[in-house]
Design a binder for these strands. Structure first.
Length: 414
DNA sequence: TCTGGGGTCCTAGGACCC
DNA sequence: TCTGGGGTCCTAGGACCC
C-alpha cells in the first residue's frame, strides 16, 4: 500500500476563449471574456459548433458543443471567433511549464488540463495555499485563470476542479465525499456520459451517492463487469492510478472531415481520402511509427456512422499503400448512393522500430515510394505544409488536418 | 438541436486453433 | 461425424473524454 498522496488537477477556464482573448488583448483589442462571446467553427463549412464560451455567454444558456446557429438564437449579439490552435499550443506549453515547477510529476491530460503529483513537495504541508499560489502565478504571468482541484487522487482532484469556476481552488478530501460529491447527479461523475446516466436513472440511481451505495454486483449486472466495478469505485472516491509524467505513446492516428457539402460520387470521395491519408501518414512518419491496421469511417447525411477496417500482414508508413487500402475499404463500405457528410481515416496497431521490408510493392517500387514520401516530408518541414501537394487540384476541396494549398506539385503518376 | 475533430477503452460475435 | 471448452485475434460499433 502506498502512502497518502496529494494531487492537483489544473484546468484552464474556458481555455480557447481565454487564450484567444489574451492574444487579442496583446493586439490592443477588447477582452472577449467580459462580453457574450464564443470560439466556434465556420458554420458555412458545417463546422459550426461552440468550442468554448465566455461566462456572459454561458448566462444565455449557451453550451459547449451546440450549433453556433442555436447559440446566436439565444443571444443575438453573440461574438463568434474562429479557433487558432497555434496560439493555443503556445499558451498550453506556457502554463504547463509553470505547473512543472510545483510538482515531481506532471501528466498532460489534454491541451488545457494536467495532473500534478505534489506529494513529495512542500505543497504537502500547505495544499490549499500552494494551489492558490500556483493559480495566481499563472494569472499574473500569463493573463488567464485556471481552476485547481486538490485531492488524494486524480479522480477527486478532477472532480474538485469542476466545482465552481472560474479562478478557484477547491478541495475534495476523502472525508468530504458525502457532503461535496454524493449529492451531485450521476452524470457529473467522470466517465458517466449521457447514455450511462439515462440507464442508471432507469434504476432509480440519480446521484453519485445513490451509485456509491449500490450493490456492486447489481451494478455490474447492469453495466457490465468492467464499467460496473469502475463506476462503483469512482462513486466511492477510489482511484489509485498514478500521475504518468512520461508522454504516453499514441495508440493511433486519425483524421476526419465534415464536408462542406455532402459527397455523392466515388470520385469526390477518393479525392477526400487522398488528402486525409496524405495528412495522417505524414504525421505517422514524423513520429517514426508504422501502422498495421487501417480504417475508414463514413457518416451519412442522416448521421449514421459506419466503419470498415483491415489489418495488414505488415506495418506500413507508405502513403500510397495506405491510400490504396483506404480506397478499397471505402469501396467495400459505401453503397454508392447514401450522401456522405463525413469521411475519416484512422491508423492503429502502431509499431515502432526498424522498417519492414514487406509491402504491397516490390523492392524497387518500395524504395521509390519511400523516396517520394521523404522528399515531400522534407519540403514541408523546410517550407511549411503549404509548400507541396500530391497531385490533387485542391483549390476547391476542403482543407484537412493542417492547412495547405497547392503551390507546386509532385505528380507521381507521370 | 441540423449537430467538430482527435483520441481511448470496452463489448460482442465470429474465426480459428488446441 | 458428432460433441465441448478455452484462448486469441479480428471486426464493427458504442460510449466517453476534452
Amino acid at each position: 500500500m502506498g502512502e497518502e498522496r496529494l494531487i492537483y488537477h489544473v484546468d484552464v477556464n474556458s481555455a480557447y476563449l481565454s487564450w484567444s482573448s489574451v492574444d487579442r488583448l496583446s493586439w490592443g483589442e477588447s477582452d472577449l471574456r467580459l462580453v457574450p462571446a464564443v470560439v466556434g467553427g465556420d458554420a458555412a463549412k458545417r463546422h459550426g459548433v461552440v468550442l468554448a464560451k465566455s461566462v456572459p455567454a454561458k448566462a444565455f444558456g449557451i453550451h459547449t458543443g451546440e450549433p453556433l446557429s442555436d447559440a446566436v438564437r439565444k443571444c443575438p449579439d453573440l461574438i463568434a471567433i474562429p479557433p487558432d490552435f497555434k496560439i493555443y499550443q503556445r499558451y498550453s506549453r506556457a502554463f504547463k511549464a509553470i505547473c512543472r515547477t510545483y510538482a515531481t510529476a506532471v501528466q498532460d491530460f489534454s491541451i488545457d488540463e494536467c495532473f500534478l503529483d505534489v506529494t513529495q513537495t512542500t505543497a504537502y504541508y500547505h495544499p490549499v495555499e500552494t494551489a492558490c499560489e500556483l493559480k495566481d502565478r499563472i494569472k499574473a504571468e500569463l493573463g488567464f485563470t485556471v481552476n485547481v482541484g486538490v485531492g488524494p487522487n486524480k479522480l477527486l482532484a478532477k472532480m474538485a476542479g469542476d466545482f465552481e469556476k472560474p479562478d478557484k481552488v477547491h478541495t475534495l478530501w476523502t472525508e468530504e465525499i458525502p457532503e461535496k460529491m454524493w449529492p451531485l447527479p450521476v452524470r457529473r461523475l467522470l466517465s458517466v456520459g449521457r447514455k450511462t446516466a439515462e440507464k442508471l436513472n432507469l434504476y432509480g440511481i440519480r446521484t453519485i451517492g445513490d451509485l456509491a451505495h449500490c450493490e456492486p454486483a447489481n451494478l455490474q449486472q447492469v453495466l457490465g463487469n468492467k464499467q460496473g466495478g469502475h463506476l462503483y469505485r469512482y462513486a466511492n472516491g477510489l482511484d489509485d492510478s498514478p500521475v504518468l509524467a512520461e508522454p504516453q505513446e499514441e495508440k493511433g492516428y486519425s483524421v476526419s472531415i465534415t464536408l462542406p457539402k455532402d459527397v455523392r460520387t466515388a470520385a469526390e470521395a477518393r479525392k477526400v481520402i487522398k488528402r486525409l491519408v496524405d495528412s495522417v501518414a505524414m504525421r505517422l512518419r514524423s513520429k517514426h511509427r508504422r501502422a498495421k491496421r487501417i480504417s475508414v469511417q463514413i457518416r451519412s447525411s442522416s448521421f449514421v456512422d459506419r466503419s470498415h477496417q483491415r489489418t495488414l500482414d505488415h506495418a506500413t508508413d507508405i502513403t500510397r499503400e495506405i491510400e490504396a487500402t483506404a480506397d478499397q475499404l471505402f469501396d467495400e463500405l459505401w453503397d454508392g448512393v447514401t450522401p456522405l457528410r463525413l469521411i475519416g481515416v484512422a491508423l492503429t496497431q502502431i509499431e515502432t522500430g526498424s522498417v519492414s521490408q514487406i509491402s504491397m510493392f516490390d523492392t524497387k517500387d518500395l524504395e521509390r515510394e519511400r523516396h517520394i514520401d521523404q522528399a515531400i516530408d522534407a519540403i514541408r518541414k523546410r517550407f511549411g505544409t503549404d509548400a507541396v501537394s500530391r497531385g490533387v487540384d485542391d483549390k476547391k476541396l476542403p482543407r484537412v488536418g493542417k492547412k495547405y494549398e497547392a503551390r507546386f506539385e509532385i505528380d507521381r503518376d507521370q
